[in-house]
Simulated assay, not measured.
Amino acid sequence: MKWEAWFSIDWQQVFGISLSAIGFYVGLMIFTRFMGLRSFSKLSSHDFAMTVGIGSILASTVLSDSPSLLQGLFAVGVLFIIQGLVSIIRRKIKPLKALIDNQPIILMAHGEYFWDNLKEANLSTSDVQQVLRKNSVKSKSQVFVVIMETTGDMSVIKNDDVRPDWSLFDDVRDSEMLINPAKTAPIKDALNNV
């Protein structure tokens, strides 16, 4: 194989790629119109899988002859239908929601790390510290809570004078430790004794 082939393209390919990209774009807009903007959100792990799947199908459809544009659009349509069904199941059948979704977990609260949760999430304190710095946290004492969301993103909530609305933390594992900071004391004591 000659290295020139890596840098070449003929007009037929330009035309084919352009038509496929335009067709795919229009198809995605139509699907999104029917299924809603959630289709490209990253609110849960199945939303993220949807986005990755569409990207993979887009790449293979636009840059190669196989699958064809119609095959690619059909595959994306099936993904949209699956996502719609999963969303309905999540809303209507609560026990299945727990099987489909990850549960948000507390990584740090009241300036203290939750070591078991860090271990379960395969994170180090350095990972959390990086997120704290990105959120302009200068001291651990500023941290009310750091939560790893279902998508893998970390939410940082700082201490302030506003009384928390505890219902915002109903779906977060170990949220009872936010209400009663004294419950974190056994964790601190266990670490001090190690």
Rank of each mutant, 00 (worst) to 15 (best):
I82N: 05
G84F: 05
R173V: 09
N192P: 00
I106L: 03
F74M: 11
G55N: 11
E112T: 10
S139N: 14
V143G: 06
P164T: 03
K183L: 14
S56C: 13
D10P: 11
K119F: 03
W6L: 15
N192C: 03
L73I: 13
K158H: 09
T151C: 01
I89P: 06
L96D: 09
A182T: 13
S167F: 00
T61Q: 11
A121L: 09
A109G: 08
L96C: 06
I157L: 13
T150I: 03
I22G: 09
I105F: 04
S56W: 14
G27H: 12
S18R: 03
F169K: 00
A185C: 07
N159Y: 06
V145C: 00
N117G: 05
G152W: 04
I22R: 02
E120H: 06
A21K: 02
F24D: 02
H46R: 09
I106D: 03
S124R: 04
V145M: 01
S141H: 12
N122W: 12
V162P: 01
V86D: 02
L70R: 03
I147S: 01
K94N: 11
K94G: 07
N180Y: 15
N192E: 14
P181L: 13
K94R: 11
A121W: 08
M154F: 02
R133Q: 08
P186L: 12
A5P: 04
V76F: 01
V162W: 00
M29R: 14
A121P: 08
V146Y: 01
Q12S: 14
Q130F: 11
G72Y: 00
I93M: 09
A49V: 14
D165Y: 01
